[in-house]
Every structure is written in C-alpha cells, then in structure tokens.
Amino acid sequence: MTASKCIQDVSFSECESSHVGKLHLQINCNSDCIYVLRSMVAVMTTRACMEARQSNRVSIAVDELFANISKHAYGGKAGRVELETFIEVDAHGEQELVFDFRDYASLGWKGSMEEAAERSIDVENLCPGGLGLKLICSAADHCEHEVLSDGNHWRLKFCINKSL
C-alpha cells in the first residue's frame, strides 16, 4: 500500500508559538503505519526531553496498542484509526505525554486494562496478545479504555519527569 493511501490526514496544530504542540494523525491500519507512529513518538519524546529508556517505553506501548487495534479490533484488515498526542499538565502540576487512540471497529473491546496490568504471564501457555497488553499497561503510567457506540477510545499517559 502506498503512503498516500495509508496516511489520510496529518495536521500540526498549536505548534506555531510553542515547541510543545499537538500532533493529530488519521491513518488506515496497516503495517506500514508503524513507521509513522515511531516518528510521531520520536518527535514527542524529544519535545518532552525523555531519556532513551523512557522513550523506548513510549514506543513499545504505542506500537503494541496500534498492533492490538489492527489485529484484534479490525482483524488485520484496513480500518480507520485516529491518533492525537500532546503534552499536558495534570492537576498536580506534573507534565504528562498523552496519546489518544480512536478506532471505529464494529466490536468494542470488553477487557479491563487494570486486569491486564495485574495479570501474570504464564510462560507455559503464553498468549502473545496478552503479552502485548501487559507491556502497554506496564510501560504507560496510566491507561484508559472506553467502549463507544461506534468503536473504542484509548488513552495512554506517560509522566515526563519520572525517574526510571
């Protein structure tokens, strides 16, 4: 698939007067998109001045969530995914890097992010999909999932000034 079919819309808003802007991307689920996501993660973690290990954790969580949406929500077929990423300040004055994913899959995911985070990995009976979800929940500082009438909304948050 060509890049023009994969990437439908890219906009850079609120970037004019600040290096801490918002990136918005609408893509079709396919494997090539992972390179676009990696670039977005690199831009945002650089803006957030994250060190290499923390930046890698963001890459892992974003990659895994996108792969899960592509594989499980859309069954490996092309499907619309919107991604927005920005830096915000929480109620305690701490900066967070936020990634919002929105899919339009016909079936909403019924699982629990909290359960996924707590689940131990059974090495003898490994479920690869479960491992991806485990990594998402472990790498991100906060995970949210909401079933919508026409898909799913996912939010990942990463504390910027955290010592690993």
């Binding site: 290499a52 290990r53 890698n56 954790r57 990995i121 090495v123 485990k134 990594l135 790498a139």
Partner: peptide, 16 residues
C-alpha cells in the same frame, strides 16, 4: 541492551 532488558522487566519475564 538496556532498552531490551527493560522490556523483559516490564513483562516480568527477566527472571524467567
């Protein structure tokens, strides 16, 4: 590498 080892730790498989 530090990054790859960290992924094993996140999955709680570094001791396995």
């Amino acid at each position: 590498s530090e990054n790859v080892r960290d992924v094993f730790a996140l999955a709680k498989l570094d001791t396995v």
